[in-house]
Design a protein around this nucleic acid. Structure first.
Length: 835
DNA sequence: CAGTGAGCGAGCTTCCGCTTGACTT
């Protein structure tokens, strides 16, 4: 083998290999191949922040493979992306593969064409160590912030929490927005709309105009309408102005996520999965990019496509430049690979996303839409101060709008401005209904996943490859959740004047309905408050922008990376120490008031298992214990009231009696439920546990019993712990406490007790081995089982590990992430049991 | 599935950015 070319992605490798001929082998590194030691800080504070790099377990195979190939090759070409991270990947490759730096060539290309790649091969350079150092600084800073801040939260708030340069600011945005909404003061005004009849030699029509003045209260408005009773109206001016609209640039990762959310309703993670599938199938270019640039060949084929479909006058070649600071032109915008392919994708989701990308790309190279805007002012005979204005907008030439129009987050399309009837100045108009409607200012809107990404991008926080992970991280950590608010009803005034009579009506509307938006959780708000108070610099919106400037200077060789880190770390670390020493544990305790029955204090605070309300003091002379109640879903520590708390403290409450036993209602981890004869019955959301009647409760219980009875396929007299049932996912065996699925081929009704036992034991044996299961492990000796399972997994994987002496340490493969991280800790199981 | 709300102080958690699969459900 003569030449080995290493790129970042396997899809790219495949394409490029086709261009380069027999003497070249192209392999991929699958992104970064080394990272800081995950178990420790991974940075030696006392040795100028020397990073401790290791090859992560999931990369050992890749690196071994690349080492082998590099040994056989005469020349190794490092062709990772042309940005900070890409340069670092090349450098890590050179280090990890023990490459001779004088024989190693660094190449970059901006588009994946044969021409671009052969040209790149002709002009190799050496690794830019300044750029590498800028990346090391970025990496080390993120590690220092993340790994020093998170432990502060473990001590002061709750274990396992996390903080970081990016995620903490993302959470702050959501928390601050919620605060803005809470603080928002609604103001109202009266908007007057007049309807006028046109009847002239060109025909008949209607003009709708808005009064040039807004009124602040109803009295003023009524008085004005009264004054119009004797008024006559005429056209006082007609103004026509040409206008135009231009298309948006082609998609970047962030704008694709926004438009897919607005137009298709996709969460950002779904958009990225679908885009990845389209990319791997060869339908679109790379989906993680901040560039709006289109290659020359792409521009040419878009042009051809437009001319073929709509004619030359619809074509307008445009070169968009990327505004985002620090953006690299290493990639192109997201576009279809072949512009003449109008549809692509193997399922509906892919097809819709592809369609969006195709249209956006095409539209970006189309002509402006030409408009004509018309303003007609309508004079009022009784006043000189006010006038009505009718606005119209007509599309003279649709241009790019033929294909695609960008959506906005706040759809406030109240009036449809269309074509206005032809009128001439001075012409008299007959008035129709004149309506004054009370309007209210709108509170700021909560972030959606996509609009949060947009905001982060504006602040220069995060990268195309991390937008979707950021959004899921802050939700997984339960700092932020997608929620709903039912909204409230509001009254508003409508005053009309018709045929000389005024009429006053009060109407109602629903406002503040929010669905699928991001809400801060109590933990999110609390952690944010703690960070803002104690680490204001780190969670400052400008923090990333500030350090990016330093990274740029490092990249230009004007600043030494570990000096920069040192000047950041010294004060930062001091703040960390101070916070650990000085601050109390954060509970967010807030007084709600006094219980009218007992006279005791009621407060809300964060406890081990979430927010609770507390009645009475934790410690008092009489030794009385306080009463507690957890908050319900949708309630928050910041907004809960005394009355809400009193309601919560009413549980468990007696509903009635049935079959000589009490029925009680209570609220548990999974919501409200009924308890009767030690059996639980969930209460549907529509039923209020505070007001549920005995009759309704019995009805719910009977319905559940009936449903359970119907789901039983077969029971066995010999063993009542084995029941064949029909469930959501098909038939299964309820085997004691475990649920065992029945293979599709077998008819569940024909199974014997012996069959059931065999199936169950076989299933549980496999399940217990493959993962640390909560349900599969028998209750006996839980401590032994729980410890044995992950160890076994680790041993089995480490057998495959190829050991090799290198300059860097290689991380030992450990038990699979899924088994370690996924299961929520069961507190009951955690308690050490004494034998 | 439906407890608890405290606490001995074992042993763990955690960052951001590059890339794909290998996993359940």
């Amino acid at each position: 083998m003569k030449n080995l070319v290493i790129v970042e992605s396997p899809a790219k490798a495949k394409t490029i290999e086709g261009f380069l001929g027999k003497d070249f082998v192209v392999k991929s590194s699958f992104g970064h191949i080394r990272d800081l030691n995950k178990k420790q800080l991974g940075v030696d504070i006392n040795k100028d922040f020397l990073p401790d790099y290791e090859i992560p377990a999931d990369k050992t195979k890749v690196v071994a493979d690349l080492r082998k190939a590099a040994k056989e090759a005469e020349t190794v070409w490092l062709a990772s992306d042309e940005d900070r991270e890409g340069e670092a990947i090349s450098w890590h490759l050179a280090e990890a593969l023990n490459l001779d730096i004088t024989k190693t060539r660094r190449i970059v290309f901006h588009e994946i064409t044969k021409q671009a790649i052969t040209k790149a091969i002709e002009s190799p350079r050496i690794i830019d160590i300044n750029l590498v150092n800028a990346q090391q600084a970025r990496r080390v800073l993120d590690r220092l912030v993340g790994y020093e801040l998170s432990p502060v939260l473990w001590r002061k708030v709750k274990p396992s929490l996390s903080a970081g340069r990016v995620q903490s600011v993302a959470v702050r945005l959501v928390v601050d927005r919620e605060e803005e909404i809470r603080e928002f003061k609604v103001i109202s005004w009266y908007r007057v709309i007049g309807k006028f009849f046109v009847n002239n030699d060109k025909g008949e029509g209607i003009l709708i105009g808005e009064l040039s003045r807004r009124f602040t209260n109803a009295e003023e408005t009524v008085a004005f309408l009264e004054s119009l009773k004797s008024a006559s109206y005429h056209v006082s001016s007609v103004e026509k102005k040409p206008g135009k609209k231009s298309p948006a640039p082609p998609f970047t990762t962030s704008t694709l996520q926004q438009e897919a959310a607005r137009k298709l309703g996709y969460p950002v993670a779904r958009t990225m999965t679908l885009a990845q599938q389209l990319y791997e199938a060869g339908y679109i270019t790379y989906m993680r990019t901040d560039s709006v640039n289109l290659s020359d060949t792409a521009i040419t084929s878009v042009k051809n496509e437009i001319i073929t479909n709509w004619g030359a006058h619809y074509s307008q070649v445009r070169h968009f430049t990327t505004k985002t600071k620090g953006a690299q032109e290493a990639h192109e915008a997201i576009r279809p690979t072949y512009l003449n392919q109008q549809t692509a994708g193997s399922d509906d989701g892919q097809r819709k996303l592809y369609d969006l990308i195709w249209k956006r790309t095409i539209a970006s190279q189309m002509a402006d839409a030409e408009l004509e805007r018309t303003n007609i002012t309508i004079g009022i005979s009784t006043t000189k101060k006010e006038e009505f204005i009718a606005r119209g907008e007509v599309i003279k030439f649709d241009g790019f709008l033929k294909v695609y129009a960008e959506s906005t987050d706040d759809d406030l399309s109240e009036d449809t401005e269309g074509l206005l009837p032809p009128v001439t100045k001075g012409e008299a108009l007959k008035p129709g209904e004149i309506t004054a409607t009370q309007k209210f200012s709108q509170q700021p809107s909560r972030y959606t996943e996509a609009s949060l990404v947009k905001k982060l991008e504006e602040l220069g926080i995060g990268r195309p490859s991390t937008y979707a992970p950021i959004i899921s991280t802050i939700q997984k950590r339960e700092y932020v959740e997608k929620g709903e608010r039912p909204g409230t009803t509001r009254q508003f005034d409508v005053i009309t004047l018709l045929n000389g009579k005024t009429d006053f009506k009060i109407k109602t509307e629903k406002v503040g309905v929010d669905k699928g938006k991001l809400f801060p959780t109590d933990i999110g708000s609390l952690v944010n408050q703690y960070l803002v108070t104690n680490f204001p610099d780190i969670v400052d919106y400008q923090f990333t922008a500030t350090v990016e400037k330093d990274f740029d200077e490092i990249a230009e060789g004007r600043l030494v990376w570990n000096k920069m880190i040192s000047s950041f770390y010294a004060p930062f670390h001091k703040t960390v120490d101070k916070a650990i020493a000085s601050t109390e544990k954060v509970k967010g305790e807030r007084d709600l008031g006094i219980d009218p029955d007992t006279g005791k204090r009621i407060c809300v605070k964060l406890a081990r298992f979430g927010p609770i309300v507390q009645l009475g003091e934790t410690e008092n002379e009489s030794g009385e214990k306080p009463r507690f109640a957890g908050l319900r879903k949708g309630q928050s520590m910041e907004t809960i009231t005394l009355n809400d708390a009193l309601d919560l403290l009413k549980f468990p409450r007696l509903i009635g009696r049935y079959q000589d036993d009490d029925i009680t209602a209570a609220i548990g981890r999974f919501g409200p439920y009924l308890l009767h004869q030690k059996k639980f019955y969930s209460l549907p959301a529509a039923i209020d546990p505070l007001t549920v009647t005995e009759a309704k409760a019995i009805e719910i219980m009977l319905a559940k019993q009936e449903k359970d009875r119907l789901s039983v396929i077969r029971t066995f007299d010999e063993d009542e712990n084995v029941i064949i049932k029909n469930g959501r996912f098909g038939p299964y065996i309820a085997f004691g406490k475990a649920n065992v699925p029945i293979p599709k081929k077998t008819d569940p009704a024909t199974l014997s007790l012996e069959d059931c036992r065999q199936l169950s034991e076989a299933y549980l044996a496999v399940k217990g081995k493959s993962r640390t299961s909560k349900t599969a492990a028998p209750k006996k000796e839980p401590a032994v089982k729980k410890k044995a399972a992950p160890k076994a997994a680790a041993d089995s994987t480490s057998v495959k590990k190829t050991t090799r002496a290198t300059t860097t340490t290689e991380a030992k493969p450990k038990a699979k992430k899924a088994s370690a991280g996924k299961a929520k800790p069961k507190t009951s199981a955690k308690k050490p049991k004494k034998a």
